[in-house]
Structure formats: structure tokens, C-alpha cells
Design a protein around this nucleic acid. Structure first.
Length: 473
RNA sequence: GGUCCCGUCGUCUAGCGGCCUAGGACACCGCCCUCUCAAGGCGGCGGCGCGGGUUCAAAUCCCGUCGGGACUACCA
């Protein structure tokens, strides 16, 4: 039987890093087994729906190279892949469940439910629906307080509901006894639990790979499969990515929870993909830098660590730097130019400067910052650097440099270095460190820059002299 | 509060009864290289939460305890 897996994000805002994490592991297994990977949009929460979010999901996942075989944007044999377009699929299931007495209507108002829950919490009782509506007709229920016109449909959880299941990562897992879960909301939309199970079945999903946060609701899902006489999929509950304080990674506490953040920061997608794979997973030979193909080649659920890993941006940064250094320089240059959104002469000079920054940066954002001085509209004098290096002591140094560069016949790196060394180190008797510090700040605006002589060559004589001049004033 | 999941250096991890005086990576510290910053090389710091068992032998198995996390919505 061919394997079919899916990832099912909700378009409720910036795409979440967890979506990419789940996609990666889904895909690793699919590619190893030779099946299909489905992207399904779970847009049943109409209140939290976010315009543009769906497109961002496509963009960021593609950016990461995590591509799907079927989805709302490309179609497939089980279209539509957007739950809001599948409402007719869920209704008959609800009817059947109502018919067989597995589900019931509930007219309790949100206010009553809240009140009930608060009372339970206050009394330190487990929270859960008290089944006031069970076995009652609409008329009988209407006579009681806390009635609302439009009912929801709830599951009637039996006492002997199965609470344990086999998990590919964790082995035999126990889960809490479920509450009478709402399946159909008053707005006619299904809840996650219903839609998810129905769609997974309809779409022939064989393995449900999702976050650990779903363990508690798995018994509800199993019940639905069993009630409908559908074959259960296999489950794999991945560990949750964590903030530094060990809580579930969140956009509020952690910028890295937003997938677009990595794009903005100029991380290389291959680095993020590798890093995400390292979260809870390791190759048998202990190798830490590896491609997706290498991950696929040896992929095994038993190698997934159930412990929730803390998302350590420092290590990602290192990996990103590593991948930057491994890139062919022309490739890095074109990515950098695209990242900076430049073309023409600016793109040319940045391309020529790329070899100078390749081993000095770990993200495209850093690279952009380091070559920015070559573009007049991005050049900026760092006030702290100026205060440190361009004081009165610097005047003779700057003047000597200006003189040395002014009449150079060939303005290339070797000649520039020779002239500057002759004028400053030999001429003024300065140590190289002290000689070149002020020049660097004057020319690049910063105490940190690509190698100085190469930088000056790229900047060109005229602009170099202008900057030395303005540093003197 | 209840239920469930989890517990090896600061972080990511290897380890699945003897190969462990616990290995690697990131971070950090020191040295070398050096026009700054990096990169690179070398070295260092640092961990099996705790307590009982089982066993000739436990990071590895069992129990307890403590700790962390998730869930406990007409959100997903």
C-alpha cells in the first residue's frame, strides 16, 4: 500500500515554524517510502481566518524546499483541499452519528458553559460538559436555563472509549478520557476534530504525523474512525519545539516562531531545513550537517527523540554560515543581490564584493550589512566607530593615506596595500593595526569590514578620496 | 486542580546492561594566524534531576519522588 501523509495548517496569521517542522518529517517519511504528501488548508475557524496567510504558507514552505504533491494550489485526486470548500463532506457524517446515537444536539449557551467550567475549576473538579442536553428534545431543553437557539453537535463519549494507541515515536501511549467534544459548531462549520478525521479518511491518509499537543485528543479521533467503520491511520506525535523557557514555541515569546522571520533575517533555507531536522532527530553516524536526501536515506521514526527541543538560534546561525561558505560564490552573490533588492551597477559591485564577505557572515542580512558601504545610498558612518577612530590623532594618518592614494598609477589591491603600508607603517612608524583602523572607519563607516585594501579597490579612487576628505572635516 | 507526555553538558544530541574515568556539535573561555571582523587550527570549561531497588555490572531495566511541558474551547 502506498503511503499518504499530510500537513494541515490553519491560515490564521504568519505561518508557524511548527508547520515547517511537521512538513519536514512528513516529507522525509513520504520520500523514503515513495508515497504522496498532501497540503490541506484547515480554515474552519472563520473568526481567526487571516487574509494572505494561505499564500504565505505556500511561499515559505516552497522557500524551504518542502514541496507537496497535492494541495489547494495545485489540485489533486481528492480536491478540494481547503476545508471551507468541503462542508458537504462533513454533514452526512454528522447525520449518521446523530442517527446512531453516537452524537447529540446541545443547546447550551456559551455563557452557561463558561459558568459551568468556572464552577468546576473553583471546586477543583475536572472540567467537562455536564451532559445537560443528553436525551432531551429541543422543547424539553428550552424550558431550562442557558438555552440558545442554534444547537451544536457533540460526541457522546462512551465509558469504554479506547484511551491508548500505538505511536510510531513513543510506542504505546495513554491519553486522557475525552470530554463530549463538539463536532459541529453553530455556524455550520465542523471543528478540527471532525473535519480532520473525515478528510484524513477521505483523502486516504495512512499516517498522521503531528505535534505532541494532539495526544490528548487522539482518543476522540480514534472513536470517530471506529464509529464510522473506517480504518485507523498510524499516528506519530512529534515533540514540540520550545522557547528558551521550555514552553511551546510561540510568536509572542519568540520571533523564530514565525517562518517569515527567517526569510527576513536572511538565513539560508537549506540551513533552516537542516537545523529543523536536528531538532529531535539525528543521523545514525552522528553527522550534523546533512542534506534532506541524506535524512531521507536513513529516516526512521525510532530515531525521533520525544523530548521537546529548545530552538537555539545560535546553532542555526552557525549552520547558516556554514552553508554560506559552501555555496559557489556566484550563487551566493546572486542570492545576496536578490535579498538586497538591487540591480545594475549596485548589483555588480555587490557581486564583486561577495568573495570578501563569504567567510565573514552567517546570514544574507549580515552580508548585506557588510557590503552596504559600497553603495553610496547605504553608506553610513557609525558614530561610535568615528568617536573611537577618527579623533585628532587620526588626522595625520588620514592625510597620509589621502596623499598615498591620490597619485597611485594603478588602483588595485596590491598597489593600494603597498602605498598605504609605505605611507603609514614605514612613513609614520605606526603599527599596522593603528595605521589601518582610522582608514577603515573613514572608508567603510565601521570598525568591522571586509579586508581593507580590497574594499578600497572596489570603492574606487574617487569615492575613497571623498570619504577620507569628509573624515578630515 | 485533573489527565497525559517527557527528563544525558547552558543548548541540540550519541548512548538502547559491560566498549562510558559518558562521545560529538553550537555557545563560551584561552592560544595560534591576522589590516578589523570572521573563517581555520589547537586546547579548555561543562552533563546522566534525586532516592530506592534488580544485576557480577545501570546513563541504560523497575518503583517512587522531584522537575518541566502539553491538554483540559462552538482554536487549531
Amino acid at each position: 500500500m502506498t503511503v499518504r501523509l499530510r500537513v494541515a495548517p490553519s491560515p490564521t496569521g504568519d505561518p508557524h515554524v511548527g508547520t515547517a517542522y511537521m512538513s519536514l518529517f512528513n516529507l522525509a517519511f513520504v520520500r523514503r517510502e515513495g508515497g504522496a504528501f498532501v497540503l490541506r488548508i484547515e480554515d474552519t475557524d472563520r473568526a481567526r481566518l487571516n487574509e494572505g496567510s494561505e499564500q504565505q504558507i505556500y511561499d515559505t514552505l516552497h522557500w524551504l524546499g518542502l514541496d507537496w504533491d497535492e494541495g489547494p494550489d495545485i489540485g489533486g485526486p481528492f480536491a478540494p483541499y481547503r476545508q471551507s470548500e468541503r462542508l458537504e463532506t462533513y454533514r452526512p457524517v454528522v447525520e449518521a452519528l446523530l442517527e446512531s446515537g453516537r452524537a447529540y444536539h446541545c443547546w447550551c449557551s456559551p455563557a452557561r458553559l463558561t459558568e459551568m467550567r468556572e464552577a468546576q475549576q473553583k471546586a477543583k473538579q475536572p472540567t467537562g460538559y455536564d451532559r445537560l442536553c443528553v436525551g432531551k428534545t429541543r422543547e424539553e431543553r428550552a424550558a431550562l436555563p442557558g438555552f440558545s437557539e442554534q444547537p451544536v453537535v457533540r460526541m457522546l463519549i462512551p465509558d469504554d472509549a479506547p484511551l491508548s494507541f500505538a505511536d510510531l515515536i513513543r510506542g504505546e501511549v495513554n491519553a486522557p478520557r475525552p470530554d463530549d467534544q463538539v463536532l459541529m459548531k453553530t455556524d455550520g462549520f465542523p471543528t478540527y476534530h471532525l473535519a480532520n478525521v473525515v478528510d484524513d479518511h477521505e483523502m486516504g491518509i495512512t499516517h498522521v504525523v503531528r505535534g505532541e499537543e494532539w495526544i490528548a485528543s487522539t482518543p476522540k479521533h480514534i472513536l470517530l474512525y471506529d464509529w464510522m467503520g473506517w480504518e485507523r491511520p498510524q499516528f506519530a506525535h512529534m515533540p514540540l519545539l520550545r522557547n528558551t523557557d521550555k514552553s511551546k514555541i510561540s510568536k509572542r515569546k519568540n520571533p523564530a516562531a514565525r517562518l517569515t522571520w527567517f526569510v527576513e533575517q536572511g538565513f539560508l533555507p537549506e540551513a533552516l531545513r537542516n537545523f529543523l531536522a536536528l531538532m529531535g532527530y539525528s543521523l545514525p553516524d552522528g553527522q550534523e550537517v546533512f542534506s534532506f536526501e541524506e535524512m531521507v536515506a536513513s529516516f526512521d521514526w525510532s530515531r525521533v527523540n520525544p523530548v521537546g527541543p529548545v530552538f537555539d538560534v545560535d546553532k542555526l546561525r552557525w549552520l547558516s554560515g556554514h552553508y554560506i561558505r559552501e555555496l559557489p560564490v556566484e550563487e551566493l552573490a546572486s542570492r545576496l543581490v536578490a535579498f538586497m533588492g538591487i540591480d545594475g551597477a549596485a548589483a555588480d559591485v555587490v557581486t564583486r564584493a561577495t568573495p570578501l564577505v563569504q567567510e565573514r557572515v552567517s546570514t544574507l542580512l549580515e552580508a548585506a550589512g557588510m557590503v552596504g558601504f559600497l553603495l553610496d545610498d547605504r553608506f553610513a558612518m557609525d558614530p561610535e566607530a568615528a568617536a573611537k577612530q577618527l579623533g585628532h590623532d587620526a588626522r595625520p594618518v588620514l592625510e597620509a593615506a589621502r596623499g598615498a592614494l591620490h597619485d597611485l598609477t594603478s588602483f588595485d589591491t596590491a598597489a593600494i596595500e603597498a602605498a598605504l603600508r609605505a605611507a603609514l607603517v614605514d612613513g609614520l612608524g605606526l603599527k599596522p593595526k593603528h595605521a589601518f583602523g582610522p582608514i577603515r572607519v573613514a572608508v567603510t563607516g565601521s570598525t568591522v569590514s571586509p579586508p581593507l585594501f580590497e574594499s578600497i579597490e572596489l570603492l574606487g579612487r574617487d569615492r575613497t578620496l571623498v570619504r577620507l576628505e569628509s573624515a578630515l572635516n
